[in-house]
């Protein structure tokens, strides 16, 4: 897909949850909390998404600080860039929706 394709809701919330390094279960909790319980990531979906985000180089899996047995996911510079771009895109969508439906909202 050319330019900047939209992220899925799952990808968006995973990247957003990783503003601080986090382990898998933490991402599930953060997503649910951030979305006020609306978005729940199922573990299988999350696992698949994390693997493909690692493959793309948007996130990395590293040993957590001070505990080499525990691993955490961390957002890379590229991942952060994608996330910022997506927020801008979403702003545009929301702005246009508000402009046209303004009175109904």
């Amino acid at each position: 897909m050319p330019g900047n394709p939209a992220l899925t809701e799952a990808t968006y919330y995973i990247l957003l949850s990783l503003h601080r390094p986090c382990h898998g279960y933490g991402i599930m909790q953060q997503t649910e909390e951030l979305s006020g319980g609306r978005v729940r990531l199922a573990a299988g979906t999350l696992y698949g998404a994390l693997n493909s985000l690692c493959d793309k180089g948007w996130i990395v899996l590293e040993a957590a600080d001070g505990d080499s047995r525990r691993k955490e996911y961390r957002l890379t510079d590229k991942g952060r860039e994608i996330l910022v771009r997506e927020v801008k895109r979403l702003k545009e969508l929301a702005r246009n929706g508000e402009m046209i439906l303004g009175e109904e909202l």
Binding site: E9, A10, L41, A42, G44, T45
Partner: peptide, 15 residues
């Protein structure tokens, strides 16, 4: 809590 393995269409399709 609720227990599902997949929460979106994409991952159901890859399954």
């Amino acid at each position: 809590g609720v227990f599902d393995l997949y929460s979106d269409i994409d991952s159901r399709i890859s399954h």
